[in-house]
């Protein structure tokens, strides 16, 4: 958080041990703590949402059903009939990221999706899954994708490394996109919030002008709500697209 007149926008992303001595011993920081919170929230949402199991759903159950259908349609429409097999994975991924993005918007909380270690781990999981599925479905024909059809053989030494690098850049771009969006949003929050603190030092005039950054921060919260769901959606839909390419014969 911003302290005094200096702006420390990146301090909010620092990891500290939590839960006292036990956390200290286990090197347990906010990041895994909020991951656990996110997982528990998603599980509680589904469990308490679906517990009534009513034919005519209440609001909570309707929300859980909409969530289920939304991801299921996305998986089956994008990947094809084989997508049903990957639906649990995509559902988990989407709601884990969405919960992480939204928990980070609460004051005094921590956004675990703002660390490249977390997003890269998620992206590598997706990448390895798609490679394994490709190798299983297509066998060695998978490697033929690295040579564009119709290109002359003389260009192969140039084209194949470029295609391989383009393929390898997928998890990197997937992780950078989520991480950069979350970091940028939270840095902007901090910058505008520290403007308020700085302006408060200028007396009455400053108090009046401080309304500006506060209004901007309120608009930013709305924007971040949109960005949070959009980035989770983009992560999930790109996972679907990569898996579609993997299961295509």
């Amino acid at each position: 958080m911003a302290g005094g007149s200096s702006i420390d926008v990146l301090g909010q992303f620092e990891l500290h041990p939590v839960l006292g001595g036990l956390g200290e011993a286990l090197r347990f920081s906010q990041s895994p703590l909020y991951m656990l919170v996110a997982v528990c929230l998603v599980l509680a949402f589904l469990y308490f949402g679906m517990r009534p199991a009513a034919v005519v759903p209440g609001r909570f159950q309707a929300a859980a059903e909409v969530a289920y259908e939304f991801i299921r349609n996305m998986a089956v429409d994008t990947i094809g009939p084989e997508g049903a097999a990957f639906f649990p994975f995509i559902f988990t991924l989407f709601f884990f990221i969405l919960a992480g993005n939204y928990i980070g918007l609460l004051p005094f909380s921590f956004t675990f999706t703002s660390h490249i270690a977390v997003t890269l781990a998620l992206a590598l999981l997706v990448f390895l899954l798609s490679v394994i599925v490709s190798l299983k479905v297509q066998g060695f024909r998978f490697f033929a994708h690295f040579m564009p059809a119709g290109a002359s053989l003389a260009l192969a030494p140039l084209l194949i490394p470029i295609e391989i690098l383009s393929f390898l850049s997928r998890p990197v771009s997937l992780s950078i996109r989520l991480f950069a969006n979350m970091v940028a949003g939270h840095v902007m929050f901090d910058i505008f919030a520290s403007f308020v603190v700085m302006l408060a030092g200028f007396g009455v005039v400053g108090d009046v002008f401080a309304i500006g950054p506060i209004a901007i921060n309120m608009a930013l919260v709305a924007l971040e709500l949109l960005v949070g769901v959009l980035q989770a959606y983009v992560f999930a839909i790109l996972t679907c697209i990569y898996l579609r390419e993997a299961v295509a014969h």
């Binding site: 690098l165 850049s169 771009s173 950078i176 996109r177 959009l230």
Partner: peptide
């Protein structure tokens, strides 16, 4: 803007992978 941001990350990430390799 979303498209521009995505194009930017695609370019940067390929370059990062190339340099790393």
């Amino acid at each position: 803007p979303a498209l521009a941001l995505r194009a930017g990350t695609e370019m940067i990430s390929a370059l990062v992978v190339g340099v790393a390799v």
